[in-house]
Design a binder for these strands. Structure first.
Length: 393
DNA sequence: TCTGGGGTCCTAGGACCC
DNA sequence: TCTGGGGTCCTAGGACCC
């Protein structure tokens, strides 16, 4: 049987776990963008009870937050990654679980050599308690015949208090459960595909699995067919993916809109530096750089423009100045005066291992001095903070 | 005033090959 | 009049995920 573990309101739980005085209080985690903009990313049940929701911009709920003394925690991804690792570790120690994988910072999947619902529940209960004991993070567990069905089970574990955070979904209960699930809540059905299904008169997951496979095939790509099979009880998703990331990106929504090219150049330099640092940290190089720009999509009264361009580098590199040079060239090619820009970002792609670096016929091996410069920069920035050493022109 | 950020995978279509 | 067929590889963009 497939096991799914999902941390409850993960970012908020992490903040409470590391600041015990917040226990039982309304807490929201929000991303800070200098002048207090940003949106709510996660909230404790106490904050939810006030009517707050994930995704709401802070400015819309300032008063509500103030009146109810809601604690606002800035998002701290480093902390969450660390707690996530502890959870991973705790579960792996339970040696009957197989192929245990981390799917995202707050979700895990595994396979259990058990088929008795009672034993499955006992196992999940043990893991759940262990995780809470080690990390103070509450989790929900779902168990069923495929990854997608395990996610469905977790959905029920979360939304129906009677399950106590654990739901074992056996074949005999599958149809009943799916009849209560909106297609929009199926893993793999997003906004667009949900609408497609509604247009066909398909609203519940049960209606979805009763469609002929040929209909699913014509409506969706292979991913949709896999989802359909999984919900019908046939596992067909493989989660053991390649370990190396295939892209690294950094982008920001600015506090203010700007039409100032030098200002954008400074931002892009910074984004590249952040990406390049991550790249070197995982001992990789990249051969592709993308830069994108866009105006404020929420301002219908202003002229809109968005563009992004990718270029291929002559040879793979992780050298910040080389990447900055490429990125600025793109920026200059896509920048159009007369627009007010609100967001920009950089994506490094075509990532490979630094060891197997493939050199182009005419390119020189990376200058040893450049490598050492990067090393020193990374060490200083890690020790004294991100922008201790940054790159000028 | 103020509306996130970081990823993956799939597909269609173009460019190219013989 | 009539103008191949069968492939591969790459990439941008869309859909999805958290």
């Amino acid at each position: 049987m497939y096991l799914h573990i999902d941390c409850n309101t993960f970012f908020a739980s992490c903040e409470v776990a590391t600041q015990p005085h917040l226990e039982g209080q309304p807490v929201v985690v929000a991303n800070d963008n200098e002048n207090g903009g940003g949106i709510i990313l996660a909230l404790t049940p106490e904050a939810k009870a006030l009517g707050l929701k994930r995704g709401i911009p802070l400015f819309q709920v300032r008063n509500l937050l103030k009146l109810n003394h809601v604690t606002i925690c800035p998002v701290n991804h480093k902390k969450y990654r660390q707690i996530s690792r502890q959870i991973m570790q705790s579960v792996i120690e339970q040696d009957i679980v197989q192929d245990f994988v981390q799917y995202s910072v707050d979700e895990f999947f595994g396979i259990l050599p058990l088929d008795n619902p009672h034993e499955l529940r006992l196992y999940a209960d043990k893991v759940k308690s262990l995780i809470f004991q080690r990390t103070r993070i509450p989790v929900s567990c779902g168990l069923s015949q495929s990854y997608t069905l395990a996610k469905v089970a977790t959905h029920f574990a979360k939304h129906y208090a009677g399950y106590g955070g654990i739901c074992v979904l056996m074949p005999e209960n599958r149809e009943k459960a799916l009849s209560l699930l909106d297609v929009a809540d199926i893993w793999g059905i997003g906004r667009k595909n949900r609408q497609k299904l509604y247009d066909q008169g398909i609203h519940t997951a049960l209606q979805f699995i009763h469609c002929p496979e040929s209909q699913i095939k014509s409506l969706f790509s292979i991913a949709g067919v896999n989802t359909w099979r999984e919900l019908n009880g046939t596992p067909c998703i493989d989660l053991r993916r390649t370990s190396r990331q295939s892209s690294i990106s950094h982008s920001r929504t600015f506090a203010y809109m700007t039409d100032n090219l030098p200002e954008l150049e400074t931002q892009i330099r910074h984004f590249v530096a952040q990406c390049a640092f991550k790249l070197r940290e995982q001992k990789s190089v990249c051969q592709q750089v993308t830069v994108f720009l866009c105006t404020n999509r929420h301002r219908n009264d202003l002229a809109q423009y968005r563009n992004g361009v990718t270029t291929r580098l002559p040879s793979p590199t992780s050298d910040t100045p080389a990447l900055i040079q490429a990125a600025l060239a793109i920026l200059h090619s896509i920048f159009r005066p007369g627009f007010l820009y609100k967001q920009a970002g950089v994506v490094l792609g075509d990532i490979s291992d630094v060891k197997g670096m493939q050199l182009d016929l005419f390119s020189e091996p990376e200058d040893e001095r450049h490598r050492r410069l990067m090393q020193v920069t990374d060490t200083l920035n890690q020790k004294f903070g991100d922008n201790t050493i940054s790159f000028g022109k």
